[in-house]
């Protein structure tokens, strides 16, 4: 696990640099061992920084979502670098953002965190009800160690790990300027068996499954808002000219919304799992993204977010692309 003192030391050095204006990291949440993003603008603030298995959120989103208020006439924009802490999965968001020209590589100082997995808060809550409001968590070998109410509990990591970590192919960041720990070797594989299972069912069963999920959607758009790849200036969901789908919450509009969201991530989703994590009604959004991910890999041998040199999947083609369904 990352040495917290070293993390703060590195962060202090980075934020003290003249060419860095902001460092995005994690700090403990108000209660319990949830972590929340920390926006560090000066060396004094680094003391609050942490990295624990509770640091689930993908900080790459903040790079592209940061608001740029109108500048007074004649004012120079602050174009200094932004430093950001990324886990393996998060780092792929940086790569993909760069593929999509969101910023140049030298705009960033990347603090890489080789990661052996974060926890699924729902699993923690289910196992130790109430624990999320007070306590802390660390990783020790193959276990998570939880401290709360003066006691400590040791739980095998597999029991609390987030799903995305159980099939993580890239635990060590693919892009970084300073690696905060030793590289973590790939400890999991992803065979997409979860997707294959539903694929094997009849269309009626599939629709029954999704109709139930989609009918829960309250159209809060949290999934979109948290996504590191969803940062259009003007999302088609918000547009009035034209109206791609209505705002009403019903199965038809909800389905259209979920198709649009998933399609827009085809060949772009880097599997950080944030959408599914933040969904207040537990729609398995990653299953939608992973269906595209699986097909894209199978058909086009393409994984987004691995190389900044890659061409966006749907902006390219091969003459040999399969077309067995075309009349």
């Amino acid at each position: 696990m990352v040495d917290q003192a070293k993390l703060r030391e590195v962060a202090r050095e980075v934020i003290s640099r003249e060419d860095v204006r902001l460092l995005i990291g994690y700090r403990p949440g108000t209660y319990g061992f949830r972590a929340r993003p920390a926006f560090v603008e000066s060396a004094e603030q680094v003391e609050e920084l942490v990295f624990t298995p509770a640091c689930v959120s993908n900080l790459a989103s903040y790079l592209v979502l940061e608001e740029k208020p109108p500048l007074p006439r004649g004012a120079e924009p602050d174009n200094r670098k932004v430093a950001v802490m990324v886990k393996g999965c998060d780092s792929r968001a940086l790569v993909q953002q760069m593929v999509e020209k969101a910023y140049e590589r030298d705009h960033l100082v990347v603090l890489g965190i080789p990661c052996s997995g974060v926890v699924d808060m729902a699993r923690v809550e289910a196992r130790f009800p109430g624990v999320l409001s007070a306590g802390s968590i660390i990783r020790e070998g193959d276990d998570f160690v939880l401290s709360f109410d003066g006691k400590t509990e040791k739980v095998p990591a597999a029991e609390l790990l987030a799903d995305k970590c159980k099939r993580c192919r890239y635990p060590t960041p693919l892009v970084s300027d300073i690696m905060l720990d030793d590289e973590v070797e790939r400890f999991a594989e992803d065979d997409f068996s979860d997707i294959a299972e539903l694929e094997g069912k009849s269309v009626e069963e599939k629709w029954a499954y999704w109709a139930e999920k989609f009918s829960r959607c309250i159209r809060c758009y949290s999934c979109r808002n948290v996504c590191p790849m969803c940062y259009c200036e003007d999302c088609i969901l918000d547009r009035l000219k034209p109206v791609w789908m209505r705002r009403s919450v019903d199965i038809s509009e909800n389905t259209a919304f979920h198709i649009s969201r998933a399609y827009h991530l085809a060949g772009r989703c880097i599997q950080c799992g944030e959408c599914a994590r933040v969904c207040p009604v537990d729609i398995p959004l990653m299953e939608l993204n992973r269906k595209f991910y699986k097909d894209v890999e199978e058909l086009y041998d393409y994984e987004p977010g691995l190389s900044t040199e890659a061409t966006p999947l749907l902006s390219t083609f091969s003459v040999e692309d399969r077309e067995d369904f075309i009349l």
């Binding site: 740029k68 208020p69 924009p77 999509e100 020209k101 940062y231 061409t311 966006p312 902006s315 390219t316």
Partner: peptide
């Protein structure tokens, strides 16, 4: 948002990315 998907896709190289000033940025 200047992602360049259209630049990449255009068979006639008719699209390019240019820098503009958006409210000072």
């Amino acid at each position: 948002r200047g992602c360049g998907f259209c630049v990449e896709i255009c068979p006639y190289s008719a699209i390019e990315l240019v820098e503009v000033n958006r409210m000072g940025w």
